[in-house]
Nucleic acid binder design. Structure first.
Lengths: 303, 303
DNA sequence: ATGTCGTTGTAGCGTCGCTTCATGGATCTC
DNA sequence: GAGATCCATGAAGCGACGCTACAACGACAT
């Protein structure tokens, strides 16, 4: 029973196919297919079954993939057991983050890790849909992800995925500096009736605030723009094209924008680090993760 | 990090050297040495150090070998996870037992396992010193071993070795059918003053009884013969060459020998099954082990 | 019906690991 | 103390395994 074949099986599960798994493993689909065949021969039971023009794991395949996680964890524990005797943790760790998270955390993280010495960091920004964050962990060691406050967790959380809370960012109202509300200390939903809204495309808990506004006004608020990049949102807000909701620590650098806390509605997002269970056992990864948590601590508690 | 290399490291530890490990792994010493070198290169720390003309594991090597046990266990769990979907457990299991244990348990075990179907048993009798039983688990799946009642446990018990109690055999006094004590229901130490003793060579708790006899008589008992094989002991006892102590269920088949319980002294041996932690995870092995425990249950409780 | 996508076979090639043989120490024996 | 022996390790050669490249097949979409 080959370790790489088990790793491959897990990739096929998380990526949902042979070709996709081959991509993240830097292999050809043929190699993946052959590994699966060999593993199935070794196990004595079929691990995959064709479904349409793709395939999916059988019950045995799922069970083996689950067990493969434990194997990978044990192997990385073994590595870590040796690394203890290494005078200094060395190696490279790859970190990815969504755009605003990268902006907020990566600069400080890089200086912190550089201060440790011996660890090289490979950073990248990955802007993907909510459901694809988990899949990134096949390509990247530490994935900085975000999800709506109170939203559902991640698939495989606990068993094959480790989730480390980094910080909770409240969503503040962003208005132009010359907006009528700009000098207030805070706002309430009823203050926002009639405003034009700039919303993000995907899964942000803007809805909670907008619902409160709707409840206060009796009519649904107007959403005029749908922009994902916060810098663009800030530019639009500053130019007076509407108001928006921005994570407190992420935006606010634009001189023409004011951020105001919204009272009476709990809205925010959670920023978390996602790691595959086996990767989380590597000592270098743990060191980087510690620094990441410390850096995030500068901006508030993870709870 | 190769699975076979980890397995090799464990074998080097338990066998105490490269050559010995190579023997049980069916490899040449050179291959073992190369695997160790590759593993050490991979780990980044030396795993072995030369000591005299042999070698021993470094602290890092010990740590890695410990972790390797967990890896092997996880791998076998993965195998077992697939085997659940196999309609019937199949495969071959190797079982070894010391002479009298084999005589007592193997016939029944073979018929029981044959009744299950699909499992082939490779039995062998291994008569080794007390300290070498654990080492046998590198060559044999299930090792039926024995140790003095109240004696020390096995090295690595719990972590890298699984110990399954099979039965506790009291030691009875064996006398010739025409001996003066032959018609008694039981004997006490003071009855045995002046007898000539036939003892076994290695580590049996005969001492407890002999000490009691010495306390009753005031002088050490005479030990005239040292014989390991119980059949030979019985033959000698039957021929009137002395008395001896025999496990209750093992001997007694010789028509010229009577077995008498010894009151006032707790003496006996424990018969246990020894398995490597990873081997114990295999489903076929578990099945065989269940049958072995059941068979042993015919001769008394393991406690 | 044709094109495309995704998986699975086949041939060829590189690489890795094992065996054989040879070398270097360290211990034991005489 | 010198030779013999045992043990571990290195170098060369060979075999096997796994990967890539290419082709074939089935399924879905247009």
């Amino acid at each position: 029973m080959d370790l790489r074949a088990l790793e491959t099986l897990r990739a096929v599960r998380t990526q949902g196919g042979v070709s996709a798994a081959a991509t993240v493993l830097h292999l050809t689909p043929s190699a993946v297919s052959q590994q699966l065949a060999a593993l199935s021969r070794d196990a004595g039971v079929p691990l995959t079954e064709r479904i349409g023009r793709g395939l999916r794991l059988t019950a045995a395949g799922e069970a083996l993939a689950d067990a493969a996680v434990d194997v990978a964890v044990a192997v990385e524990r073994a590595r870590a057991a040796c690394a203890v005797f290494l005078d200094r943790p060395e190696g490279t760790v790859s970190v990815s983050a969504f755009q605003s998270g990268a902006q907020l955390l990566l600069p400080g993280l890089l200086t912190r890790v550089a201060a440790l010495g011996g660890i090289t960091l490979e950073c990248s920004d990955e802007d993907v849909a909510q459901s694809e964050f988990a899949g990134l962990t096949d390509r990247v060691d530490v994935v900085v992800a975000h999800r709506p406050d109170g939203g559902a967790g991640w698939p495989g959380e606990g068993s094959r995925l480790r989730v480390v809370p980094l910080l909770r960012e409240p969503l503040d109202l962003a208005v132009a500096a010359d907006h009528q509300l700009a000098d207030r200390d805070a706002v309430r939903p009823e203050d926002l009736v009639g405003e034009e809204w700039i919303a993000v495309r995907q899964g942000f808990p803007v809805a909670a605030v907008l619902d409160a506004v709707a409840a206060a006004s009796g009519s649904p608020p107007r959403i005029t723009q749908r922009i994902n990049d916060f810098s663009v949102v800030e530019a639009l807000v500053a130019a007076g094209h509407g108001v928006s909701l921005l994570p407190r620590h992420t935006g606010g650098t634009h001189p023409g924008v004011r951020l105001l806390p919204v009272r009476g509605v709990r809205a925010g997002r959670r920023v978390e680090a996602l790691l595959r269970a086996d990767v989380a056992e590597r000592v270098v990864v743990r060191r980087v993760l510690d620094e990441l948590v410390a850096e995030a601590g500068r901006f508030g508690s993870p709870a």
